[in-house]
């Protein structure tokens, strides 16, 4: 665990930030992958499975991030977020709906009174290639329209070029724009290449003030993987031990089946601990996952296998 006593004010001391990130212990790649694979073999059955499915539904950030998104599609998604299975009122609602910043207003109106958050991607999502003032304007617009959570992307180019300070300063600036609004920082781990980079980027984002660290945009393959999430969960655990501040984790992209979702929940419980096992501290960014969760839930309640014909298309 890094010694944070010398890290008084990173913004004022670039050399210290660099030293701290370089000083992070390297990730044992084989160990991380084996640990994630081992935890993925856990068998979760019956009542534990029912609990896990409901927990996973309540953690979903129901996402639509397409060029073809329309206000109508966003309204349909919001209706599904509030009542995932209209035939069964015992199904919990999802945590948030995640849209592009220009559709935030539509989502806020559609979700009024449901208690479901509206997350907006911002800062030139998904590439992050724009001047800082454009990124800040993007963020401000989403917040003015009523977004309760901002999903920003980091400048991967600057990070890979070694300019950690630039990435840090951008996150600090966006966080200042956000104020009380929750800030999720997308690391885009598929472009960071190594687990060591994932660990460094996680610490960088947390030190800069992120409330959540998120694996990916969903636009790059590989998106979320179990080992990457393991590394990030270790980072938030260590960060809380070092500073006392708790930061959430959100894997996103490529999580499509109930089995996948349960693997992530096991990973959270075994790595960061049960404190993270709530929608407040762990989210699953997904769109098609919800239908599979609902299908598995109905299998548990009715005892027969369901089919996609009986759930909404999205």
């Amino acid at each position: 665990m890094p010694d944070l006593s010398t890290f008084a004010d990173a913004a004022a001391a670039p050399a210290e930030l660099r030293g701290l990130l370089r000083g992070l212990p390297p990730v044992d790649q084989v160990g991380a992958e084996e640990r994630a694979a081992r935890l993925a073999t856990r068998s979760i059955k019956k009542s534990a499975k029912a609990y896990a499915i409901d927990l996973a539904i309540s953690m979903v950030d129901l996402t639509t991030l397409e060029g073809a998104d329309t206000p109508g599609k966003v309204r349909a998604l919001c209706a599904k977020a509030a009542h995932p299975d209209p035939a069964d009122a015992s199904v919990p609602k999802v945590a948030a709906v995640c849209v592009y910043s220009d559709l935030v207003g539509e989502a806020v109106r559609a979700l009024d009174g449901t208690g479901i958050g509206v997350a907006s991607v911002a800062t030139a999502f998904p590439s992050g290639r724009a001047p800082l003032d454009a990124k800040l304007a993007d963020t401000r617009r989403a917040i003015d329209d009523g977004a309760s959570e901002i999903d920003m992307v980091i400048d991967r180019g600057a990070f890979l070029a070694g300019d950690h300070q630039k990435v840090f300063d951008e996150i600090v600036a966006v966080k200042a724009e956000c104020g009380d609004v929750h800030l999720k920082v997308i690391l885009e781990t598929g472009e960071l290449v190594t687990y060591d980079n994932v660990r460094r980027a996680s610490w960088l984002a947390m030190l800069a003030g992120a409330d959540f660290i998120k694996t990916s945009t969903g636009k790059v393959s590989p998106a979320a993987t179990l080992p990457v999430t393991l590394v990030m969960l270790e980072a938030v655990r260590d960060f809380r031990a070092a500073t006392g501040r708790q930061v959430g984790v959100k894997p996103a992209g490529g999580i499509r089946t109930t089995k996948d979702a349960i693997k992530y929940l096991v990973l959270v419980n075994e790595t960061a601990g049960p404190d993270w096992l709530t929608p407040e501290w762990f989210r699953l960014g997904a769109s098609s996952l919800l239908n599979d969760l609902l299908m598995q839930r109905r299998k548990l309640t009715t005892g027969v296998y369901g089919g996609p014909d009986y759930f909404t298309m999205d």
């Binding site: 005892g303 369901g306 089919g307 014909d309 009986y310």
Partner: peptide, 8 residues
């Protein structure tokens, strides 16, 4: 199981 499957 085949007979009760909703997607058959």
């Amino acid at each position: 199981w085949l007979a009760s499957h909703q997607d058959v």
